[in-house]
Design a protein around this nucleic acid. Structure first.
Lengths: 251, 251
DNA sequence: CGTAATTTTGACTCCGCTCAATTGGCGTGG
DNA sequence: CCACGCCAATTGAGCGGAGTCAAAATTACG
C-alpha cells in the first residue's frame, strides 16, 4: 500500500535541502501525470536538467507556507500532502490532497508568493521544478508550454469540482464523492481501488468537505452500517462502489 | 452605473460572430486588469493583432457551454457574466461572476473543451483572445507569457477563496464577504463603492454562496433591518462597510 | 396591460453542529 | 513489558441554522 520507490541517498555531508539527486523523468512512474507528459523523447533530457533536485519533507512539515517566496512548483514523488489556506481570522480551509505525480504551488506564479500552505501528511519526497527555468524552457518547447498551461487549467477544473461539492451536495454525498475520487486516483497509480489508508485526520477531511470532524466520523460509521465500506480508524475498504455512486444519483 | 463604452458597430452584412472591430488595448479601460498588463508599449501593437475580434452576447445567452470546443479565452469588455458547472445529476453550481477586464474560459486549455458554461447576465461584449495565437506569441514575449500564467494562477487563488467561503463560513458571513468583494471590484473600475445593481438573481447568488434563494433573500432583509445595507430587489446600497467587515471578524 | 418570473415572508422541519463523555491507538519512559 | 499520557476517533443528547413548502407581493417583460 505504501509507495516504496528506491531513492539513491544523498551523499553524506552535502548541502541542506534541496539536495541534488540522480533524477530521471523518463523512468518515473508518474511521467504521464506530471510535467513531462507529451514532451517528446528527445526533449526529455533537457527537461530533466530543469527538474534538478528532490526534497524530502517529513510528516507534519511544511513544503511551503503562505507568504513564502515563490520559486518552484513541486511534483509529489512519494507520500501525501494537504494544501490549505488561512483567512484573516485564522480559519484554516483544506483546499486539496495530493499524491504521486500531482503538482503543488502553482498558485504562487501571479504574486511571487505562495498563497496557501502545503503540508506533508506522511514522510514524503517531491521533485523541485524551479519556476524561472520552467518558464524559460517553455518558450523553446511548445509541448512543455502547453503542458504547463494544461496543468494550471486542470487545477482550476478540480477547484470547480470542489466548489460543486461544497455548494450543492449534502454531507453524505460529499463523503461518497471523496471516497470515489480517492479510489480512482489510487487505481490510476497502481494501488488497490478498494483498500487504502487515509492519510488525513477526520478534522482535515472535515475541513476539506466543509463538515465538522464529528459529522465525518458519523458518516463513516453510517456507511459501514449500510455495508458500503469498512472503516477502522485510518483504514478504509470500499465494499460497494455502486452503492456509493447511488448516493450521488439519488439527489 | 452601466458601462457605456461607445463601440464602432460592425459593418452591416459582415460575417456572423465573432465580428471584427477596431480594437485598442492601449486605450482600454481594463488594460491593467487584462492580458496586456505588464506588456510594454512597443509590444502592444503586436498584442492587439491577437485580440482580433469582439463578440456581443445578449442577456441570457451563453458565451460558451460546457463541452464546446475550446478556441479562445474571453475578456469581459462590458457587461456581466456568470460561470457555472453542471454535474452528472444536472445540478448547477455557479462558480463565479465576471465583470469588465476579467477573463473567462481558461479552464478549457487542458482538455480542448470548456469544462463549464459562461452566460451573460446582461447585454455584454467580450474581447476574443484566440488561444493558439496567445500561446504562440507568449513564446516570443516573456511578459505576455508571465501574464498569462499569472492570470491562470489568480483564478486558482480566487477559487481557493470561494472554497474557504463555502467550507468555513456561515450564511451571513458568506453574503457579507460577497458584498465586500463586489464593492471592491466595482470601486476598482471607477464605479461607486457603495451603490450598485446586482445582475444575478437570488437563485444564482444562492448557488454561488452555497445557499437557497430564500436564505439569500432573508439575509438581505436582515442586513437591511440591522442598518448594514439598503436593498430593493436588485439595487443594493451599502450603508456600513465596517459593520459588514465586523460580521467576518466575529467569526 | 396581463402573464410569468422573481422576490419576500411565514411556518415548520431536519440536517449538521455543539457540547460532552468515552473509547481506542500509539509512542514514551519507568 | 506495561502504565501512563496524549491525541484521534467514536458516540450520544440536544440545539439551532438553513432548508422546505407554501403563499403573497412585487417587478419585469412581451
Amino acid at each position: 500500500m505504501q509507495a516504496t520507490i528506491a531513492i539513491k541517498p544523498a551523499v553524506a555531508g552535502t548541502a541542506p535541502l534541496p539536495c541534488k539527486f540522480e533524477v530521471s523523468c523518463a523512468g518515473c512512474n508518474f511521467r504521464e501525470l506530471c510535467i513531462p507528459a507529451d514532451v517528446c523523447a528527445e526533449d526529455l533530457p533537457q527537461l530533466e536538467k530543469v527538474v534538478f533536485a528532490r526534497r524530502r519533507v517529513r510528516r507534519g512539515e511544511a513544503l511551503f507556507n503562505a507568504g513564502d517566496e515563490f520559486k518552484a512548483i513541486y511534483s509529489v514523488r512519494s507520500g501525501f500532502f494537504k494544501s490549505s489556506v488561512t483567512d484573516g481570522e485564522g480559519r484554516e480551509q483544506v483546499t486539496g490532497f495530493f499524491m504521486g505525480g500531482e503538482l503543488l504551488g502553482m498558485e504562487g506564479i501571479g504574486t511571487g508568493r505562495y498563497h496557501g500552505a502545503a503540508t506533508a501528511l506522511e514522510d514524503s519526497e517531491v521533485c523541485v521544478l524551479p519556476y524561472a527555468l520552467i518558464e524559460e524552457m517553455a518558450r523553446e518547447m511548445p509541448a512543455l508550454q502547453h503542458q504547463l498551461h494544461a496543468i494550471l487549467a486542470r487545477e482550476i477544473v478540480r477547484d470547480h469540482g470542489v466548489m460543486m461539492l461544497l455548494g450543492s451536495m449534502r454531507a453524505e454525498e460529499r463523503l461518497a464523492t471523496f471516497l470515489l475520487n480517492l479510489s480512482k486516483r489510487f487505481t490510476a497509480r497502481g494501488y488497490s481501488r478498494s483498500e487504502f489508508n487515509l492519510r488525513m485526520t477526520r478534522e482535515e477531511l472535515g475541513s476539506y468537505l466543509g463538515l465538522k470532524l464529528e459529522t465525518v466520523s458519523r458518516l463513516f460509521s453510517a456507511f459501514q452500517k449500510e455495508g458500503l465500506i469498512e472503516v477502522q480508524q485510518k483504514f478504509v475498504r470500499i465494499r460497494d462502489i455502486a452503492g456509493l455512486e447511488r448516493i450521488l444519483r439519488e439527489n
